[in-house]
Design a protein around this nucleic acid. Structure first.
Length: 825
DNA sequence: AGCACGCCGACT
DNA sequence: GTCGGCGTGCTC
């Protein structure tokens, strides 16, 4: 018997392996296998039965091992990844890799050790010397680890030659699976001592006090209904050490049992309160009925749930999911970024408890693996998480919810597959005869058009949900502050104009809360020499360094690679001492607020303050407990619901408009509408929103001010239609990356040239240097592809043909194909 | 991807 | 002559 195996490499083909007699039973489609491949060993996935070995004109190698008894990949997921590979023009192996939890692949590994031999011969070999230095600094490591630190250009051949010289030792082994079920040791009486009176007999027979205490403790646990308690619990109760337990085990009286436990990072978060049950609004009920009808009919359908902020979308998701669970089927909830939507996640946990497996971007490998395993074994029936949760290993899927479906974070970029989780969700639901709900207050223009074209069914929630007293909060008043005008009136000194300052002051005095959005972190985004215009740039990226303040000190930091530098006192170009701080980040706003409202409690929430595991959670809890102001980047704009927030301020509404991206105004409109929705959720306290801008007439601001989604969509769609941009066409980009600028450019020219020949009806623009030309010392070029009409087929065909014709780029150079690009930069 | 092979220029 | 750069082709 043979099987076809797909490997997690950018190879567009399956390889056939013979299955030894002993492994035939386990070798099912979807299972991981360890296979020989050239001169290494890799973990691959069986995708199906292969042709008979005799019919093949090459030597068929044998599978070395089957690594799963239950296949990691269900039949449905196998198909889905094939679709992803076809649609997003990526190798099947890369798409398959996305469904495997991290750390579950085994492969050949080269372990390196430095020997005592004097490395004289390698002192002037540059790479060789660097490797030896790295080895000296890190002790024993693997070749992969060395490459990660030193750079990819460390050939195995070089290591072999160094080994021949005896300056290093190489051992080639298989890596361990880096994740495994976590076990705990439990304790029980040995079979001969399990009868009721055994403990008393034992206590009589034993001499040591500690040993008796252990037996007594274990008997106590048994009496409480825990016949196999954790070893550590017994030791603690008996105040005994492990050696006491061990001697009892050696005497054959007790036994140790290894039990699997699940690591769950949410255990240390407080369990949410059970929610009050209340009636749905008519619109919510209608939406729910439409969804449950489809669920009942076991029929595919995608519903675009367009509900204004505060209209109770989550309640509809929850009830729909209850209906699905009542029929014994499973569900997936996608949220844009789980750390940012703790309130949504907690509401699901309150309703579904242990049925939910939360997949969290801040979870470690073991925790993710456990969550994944609970889903795979059916122990959990609902997955909630960010985009990768769309590939959760669930069977008999009934519902996929995509919350805030317009969010750009649903598009994966690096590594491949570059899929859009919303579109994969629709496709997965379709193949599973399941229902998909796309929810948003500001749907993407794509989804709005798909609803108009009848591909999705549109459901509207036009009203906010009333509170317990029956009052409904009105949408907040939105005031646009023209900064140019403010300056003229001498009402602008710093980042916050006087009217916004006054509004904040009033809220603090009244004990109400304020949310302030400034979509840039750090203190000042740019420094500039007043005399010659010099501005500090990152040495690895073509971006200016951002000034950060911390504990009284200052530092320059690159937001792309993390490079940090000291703040120059003097311009290195002209020696000038007048170095100005230009622009405003969250830290600078924070400093200004401390002067404006010195008595207020201010919480700053951005990537710098939420780095720790429960950072978001802690900050939000402190805000809930009554801080005055929550200031932050766009992470504060989503899904937060605090009843005492009566003011939302946007320090600079124009930040997103500066990007040369056809989606810039859509993004800005969405962000402003979302953040405005955080205000006035209290029923008795009216909300106010203040937007500061230098473009008061910009359409995105105008429509956000009026809460006019339809108006915005009309105008934006007309423009997209004219230009043939999505949803009236498709775009794809090809990004070229590598260490040498000229070579990247040549590669890009070459590739694009061939692409033009295969383009057919598609338009090819470029190549040109990327918006940010250099990131982490990699130069970047970019080519844009565009086609009118509903099908991305011509783009995909052109990309596939070009990739096949062009072959692999040179070592160290990358060609990244991205279909349905979100950031066209 | 990662590696071997094989081709060229510049050094002992 | 050979070391090491880089393009090319292959992995069941």
């Amino acid at each position: 018997m043979t099987v076809n195996v797909v490997l997690p490499l950018p190879l567009d083909q399956a390889y056939t392996y013979r299955v030894p007699e002993a492994l035939v039973g386990a070798a099912q489609a979807g299972a991981r296998v360890l296979v020989p491949f050239r001169n290494r060993r890799l973990t691959g996935i069986i995708v199906g039965e292969g042709p008979a070995a005799e019919t093949l004109d090459f030597d068929v190698k044998a599978v070395l091992d089957v690594l799963d008894d239950v296949p990691v990949c269900t039949e449905g997921l196998l198909d889905l990844t094939k679709w992803i590979a076809d649609y997003y023009v990526c190798p099947w192996g890369e798409a398959l890799k996305a469904v495997l939890p991290a750390g579950t692949t085994v492969e050949t590994e080269h372990r390196l050790t430095r020997t005592d031999a004097a490395p004289d011969a390698w002192a002037d070999h540059e790479v060789g010397r660097t490797v030896l230095e790295d080895l000296a600094a890190h002790g024993e490591t693997t070749l992969a680890a060395v490459r990660k630190r030193v750079g990819p250009a460390v050939p195995l051949a070089l290591i072999r030659r160094m080994a021949a010289d005896d300056v290093v030792a190489v051992e080639t082994t298989l890596s361990d699976e880096r994740v495994a079920p976590k076990t705990e040791t439990h304790l029980r009486f040995a079979p001969a001592f399990q009868h009721k009176d055994a403990p008393d007999d034992l206590i009589e027979q034993l001499r040591g006090n500690k040993q008796r205490a252990v037996v007594r403790a274990l008997a106590g646990f048994r009496a409480e209904g825990t016949p196999e308690p954790r070893r550590t619990d017994v030791m603690e109760r008996a105040d005994a050490s492990y050696s006491t337990v061990r001697s009892l085990v050696e005497k054959g009286m007790l036994e140790l049992v290894e039990k699997e436990v699940m690591r769950s990072p949410l255990d240390d978060l407080p369990a949410p309160d059970p929610p009050p049950d209340h009636d749905l609004l008519p619109a919510q009920q209608d939406a729910l009925d439409a969804v449950t009808d489809a669920v009942d009919a076991h029929r595919y359908g995608t519903f675009l749930l367009h509900g204004i902020t505060g209209s109770g979308k989550t309640e509809v998701y929850i009830r729909a999911l209850q209906a699905v669970r009542a029929r014994g089927r499973t569900g997936i909830i996608l949220v844009p970024e789980i750390a940012l939507t703790p309130q949504t996640v907690q509401r699901f946990r309150a309703h579904f408890g242990d049925e939910i497996a939360v997949l969290h971007s801040q979870m470690n490998m073991g925790e993710r693996y456990d969550a994944w395993r609970r889903l795979r074994t059916g122990e959990a029936a609902i997955a909630i998480g960010p985009r990768s949760a769309v590939l959760a290993p669930l069977e008999d899927l009934g519902l996929i919810v995509v919350d805030e479906e317009h969010e750009a974070s649903y598009k994966q970029f690096d590594p491949a597959p570059r899929y859009h989780a919303r579109d994969v969700a629709v496709m997965r639901a379709h193949r599973a005869d399941a229902v998909c709900i796309l929810g948003s207050a500001t749907p993407s223009l794509e989804s709005t058009m798909n609803a108009r074209w009848g591909k999705y069914e549109r459901l509207e929630l036009p009203e906010r949900v009333p509170d317990a007293s029956g009052k409904t909060a009105a949408l907040p008043d939105v005031r646009v502050l023209d900064l140019a005008l403010q300056r003229k009136k001498h009402q602008l000194d710093g980042a916050l104009a006087d009217p916004l300052r006054e509004a904040i002051r009033t809220r603090v005095d009244r004990g109400e809360q304020t949310i302030l959005l400034q979509n840039r972190r750090g203190y000042a985004p740019v420094l500039e020499c007043e005399d010659c215009g010099w501005a500090p740039e990152c040495q690895s990226c073509s971006v200016s360094l951002t000034l950060h303040r911390h504990d009284g000190g200052e530092q320059l930091r690159c937001h792309y690679c993390g490079y940090a530098a000291r703040v120059p006192r003097q311009c290195p170009e002209c020696g000038g001492r007048d170095i100005h701080q230009i622009g405003t980040g969250t830290q600078r706003v924070e400093a200004e607020l401390e002067e404006v409202v010195p008595d207020a409690t201010i919480l700053r929430m951005d990537r710098d303050t939420t780095r720790e595991k429960h950072g978001h959670h802690d900050l939000l809890r402190r805000f809930e407990n009554g801080a005055d102001i929550l200031l932050g980047t766009q992470m504060i704009a989503k899904g937060l619901d605090f009843s005492r927030v009566t003011l939302v301020g946007v320090v600079d509404a124009d930040v997103g408009l500066l990007f040369p991206d056809f989606r810039a105004e859509e993004r800005t409109f969405q962000l402003l509408t979302q953040v405005a929705g955080r205000a006035g959720r209290t029923r008795e306290l009216a909300g106010e929103v203040i937007l500061q801008t230098r473009n008061p007439d910009h359409m995105a601001l105008r429509y956000a001010q009026e809460h006019d989604y339809e108006g915005f969509a009309e105008e934006a769609l007309a423009e997209r239609r004219e230009l043939g941009y999505p949803p009236f066409g498709h775009v794809a980009t090809v990004e070229f990356r590598g260490p040498d600028e000229d070579r990247v450019e040549r590669l890009a020219e070459n590739w694009t040239e061939q692409l033009r020949q295969h383009a057919g009806p598609a338009g090819v623009m470029g190549p040109e240097p990327a918006f940010i030309q250099r990131v982490k010392k990699q130069h970047r070029y970019r080519t844009l592809l565009k086609v009118r009409g509903g099908s991305p087929g011509p783009l995909q065909t052109a990309l596939r043909r070009t990739r096949d014709a062009h072959g692999a780029p040179p070592n160290g150079y990358h060609v990244a194909v991205d279909v349905d690009t979100q950031d066209v930069l």
